[in-house]
């Protein structure tokens, strides 16, 4: 079983997803920026919460404009097609402005037949008319809704909520499926350009099966670790 490991991962995708949430939670709390680490130090002391103290306005942590980032991703593609797909990917993004950017994404999938479908295949020779997908390639338009921070366990967490809308294709054995992707990706900003992101993507594909073209939808949650850098800063006039 060549893809046994990935198959196991795909099989437990729901647990994996929950793990991602917990991991993001933990990491963002654990690796808060240094300048905010005093909050943790203060946590040793009795917590005093003066009135209106939390409603402070602070400087923006990281601007998106002219920022380029390289992302690695792990996750799953859930399509309800009797296949378990574990996904890992690489992405490249660049923001032209503080709101708009472009992204290029390649995802490799390890897809295996689900247990119930395997049983059907072993017993009756029947397989889903959908083909197992091996890779996705997409180009996306990125839109930054704004930026924010929140106090989480006495830590300040900075985040960028981003929307992505992409077009691409998926390779599924001998078939090529056109793909549309829409994602909400809350990105948690860490120090030194590092970031953690939870990509919650909806996929829509057209698959040309033996009975004709079939429209399919899928859910693709991916945990993304990224490193970004602003390519140049604007000169002051």
């Amino acid at each position: 079983m060549k893809f046994g490991f990935f198959r196991a991962l795909a099989r437990f995708r729901y647990l994996l997803f929950l793990g991602m949430i917990i991991l993001i939670n933990s990491v963002t709390v654990g690796f808060i920026p240094n300048d905010m680490s005093s909050a943790y130090a203060q946590s040793k002391k009795p917590l005093v919460m003066p009135k209106l103290e939390r409603a402070r306005v602070q400087n923006r942590f990281q601007a998106r404009v002219r920022r380029s980032s390289l992302n690695t991703q792990l996750g799953a593609h859930i399509r309800d097609d009797y296949y378990d797909s574990f996904a890992s990917g690489l992405g490249l993004e660049y923001f032209f402005s503080d709101q708009w950017g472009i992204g290029l994404n390649y995802t490799c999938l390890w897809t295996s037949l689900s247990d119930e479908a395997s049983e059907l295949r072993n017993s009756y020779g029947l397989v889903p008319d959908a083909r197992p997908q091996q890779e996705h390639l997409s180009i996306s338009a990125l839109y930054g809704l704004g930026y924010g921070k929140m106090l989480l366990f006495d830590h300040i967490v900075h985040f960028d909520p981003i929307f992505a809308m992409g077009l691409g294709y998926a390779n599924a054995e001998e078939r090529t499926l056109p793909m549309f992707k829409f994602a909400f990706a809350p990105t948690f900003l860490l120090q030194n350009g590092w970031s953690l992101r939870l990509d919650l993507a909806m996929t829509a594909q057209l698959e040309n099966r033996s009975r004709g073209v079939v429209f399919t939808t899928g859910f693709m949650p991916m945990l993304t670790v990224g490193w970004s850098r602003q390519l140049w800063t604007e000169k002051l006039k």
Binding site: Y14, F17, L18, M20, I21, I78, R79, D80, D81, Y82, A117, L120, R121, Y124, G125, L126, V127, P128, D129, A130, L200, M202, E207, S210, R211, V214, F215, T216, T217, G218, F219, M220, P221
Partner: peptide, 27 residues
Amino acid sequence: VLLALACLSLGQFTACSFVEFEPSPYA
């Protein structure tokens, strides 16, 4: 956790491949 479950539910309910089973060429 609620957010995660909501996402999962969203994914699970919105994911649909309209699969039918067909004979495998190797069967």
